[in-house]
Nucleic acid binder design. Sequence first.
DNA 1: GATTATGCGGCTGTATACAATCATTGCAAC
DNA 2: GTTGCAATGATTGTATACAGCCGCATAATC
Lengths: 252, 252
Amino acid sequence: MPMSESLQPLASPRATRSRTETQDDRVYAHIFDAILEQRLAPGTRLSEETLGGIFGVSRTIIRRALSRLAHEGVVLLRPNRGAVVASPSVDEARQILHARRLVERAITELAALHATSDQLEGLRRMVNEEHECFARGDRGAGIRLSGEFHLKLAEAARNAPLLSFQRSLVSQTSLIIAQYEGPSRSHCSYDEHSRLIDAIASRDAERAVALMMSHMDHIDSKLELGEDAGSGDLQQVFSHVMQERPPGRKPR
Amino acid sequence: MPMSESLQPLASPRATRSRTETQDDRVYAHIFDAILEQRLAPGTRLSEETLGGIFGVSRTIIRRALSRLAHEGVVLLRPNRGAVVASPSVDEARQILHARRLVERAITELAALHATSDQLEGLRRMVNEEHECFARGDRGAGIRLSGEFHLKLAEAARNAPLLSFQRSLVSQTSLIIAQYEGPSRSHCSYDEHSRLIDAIASRDAERAVALMMSHMDHIDSKLELGEDAGSGDLQQVFSHVMQERPPGRKPR
DNA sequence: GATTATGCGGCTGTATACAATCATTGCAAC
DNA sequence: GTTGCAATGATTGTATACAGCCGCATAATC
C-alpha cells in the first residue's frame, strides 16, 4: 500500500502546527492529546498494528511515535509486550511533582527576567481559552490547556533543556491529575494563572515565584495520593501493574 | 542475512552491563562513549549505513540509537540530512550549565537524605577509578567517569525524572567540556568529588550543596565561553551551523 | 567567465516481509 | 479440582527493499 492519503483522521488536533510537519508528528500529537484528555485511560494497550490501521501509516511510524511518548513518560514500553498508557504509581507521582516544583521555580524566575510582551500576550490568550474550556465543561481540553500554559511559560524562560524537561513533567502531571484527582474538581483556577502573569509582567520575580509555589500547593492538595498504607482495595493497590481487561473477565 | 554474529566489535565498552541487554543498548553505548571520549568530534557525520556496517546490525537499530542520542542532545538529527555529533553553541552551553546547577542542587539535597551506604560505597569506588584515569592520562575516559559520578549521585537521590534529566545534562556537559575546555586541563578534581561524598555521608545537606555549587563554579571557570562578541574566528562562530568538510575545501 | 539548469549518486524516509518472543488456551496427569 | 506442560496465536523485534529527497558536479547558456 503506497501511503494512502485516505483515513486522515480529523485535521491536526490543534490549530497551530507547522505545515512542514511530518507524519510522525501528527501521529504523536494525536496519541498524546488523546492520553492527556483521558480518551485513553491509563493502562490501555497501544497495539502498533491497530494504531497503524487507524492512522493509515505503517508500524514504523507508530513505533517512533510510541518511542517519543515513552521518553516523555506518558507511555510505558515493555520489551516484547507492547506499549501501554502509563499509570504512575503514587511514589512516581510524588517524584514527578517534586521535580516539577524545582523546575517551575526556576522557570518562573527566568520568565520574569526574559518574557517579552508578545509572550505575555500569548499567555493571557491561553488563560482565556482555558477559562472557556472549563466553562463549557470540557475537562479533558482544560487539563491539556492548563498544561500548555506552563509550557508556554517555559518557552519564555529561554532555556531549551528546561523547556524539554518541563514538557515531560507537564505531560506526566496531566496523567497524574487525570488519575488521582479528588472529587472536588474545582480545578486549576485560571485566576492563579492570571495573577501569575501579572507578577511576571511587572518583573516581580519574588512574588511570581511565591504565586507559582502556592499554585503547586493547590494542585497537590487536589490530588488523593493517600498514605499508600493498605487501602484494602486490591484493584486500587495494583492499578499501576494491572492490565486493562474487558469487563466480564474470568479469573483463569 | 540472518543477523550474522560476525563483526561484533570489541566487547561492551565497560564491564558492568546486564546480560539481557539488547543490541540497541550496545550500539547506543558505544556511540555515546565514543562521543563523550571525543573519539568522535563535534560535527562528525554519523551515517546510518556506515555505522550499521561497523556494528553488524541493520539501519533500524542504528536509527533507534541515534534517536535516543538525539533525545539526550548529544546528536543532532537533521531531517533528510542525516545525523551529526552535536556541537552546542556558547548560548546553548550556558543554558545547559544553568539547568545543571538547579538539578545538581536538588540532587545533592535528596542524596543527603536518601543515599544508602551501598551507594556511597559505589560512589567512592567511582572516584578512585576516575583518579586512576587522569593519573594515566586518559582524558576521555576521565571526562566520562566524572560524568558517571554525577549520574550515580542522581540515582541516590531516588527521583526518576531528575535522574533522566540529569543523564541528558551530564552528556551535554561532557560535550561542552570537550569543546570549550581551556588550556588548564587540570580538571574536575576528584578531590572535590571525594569531599562531596563525605558531606553526604554525614547527612550534612547544607555543606554538601555548598560543595556542589563550588564544584560547578570550578567547572564553569575552566570553560572558555568567551563573551561571544565577535571572536573573529568565523569557523568557530558558525561551528553550530556549519557542515563538516574534508580539509582541502574550495570556497565554491 | 559567471550563473543557472540538469543529471547523478548517496543518503534518508517509509513500508513490509520474516523471525523470534511471549501470552493464552487446551489437555493430560496428579 | 488443581497443577504442570505443550501447542497455538498474536504481537513485537529485526532486516531489507524501494521510493524520494538533498547536494554535488557537470554541462549548457547568457
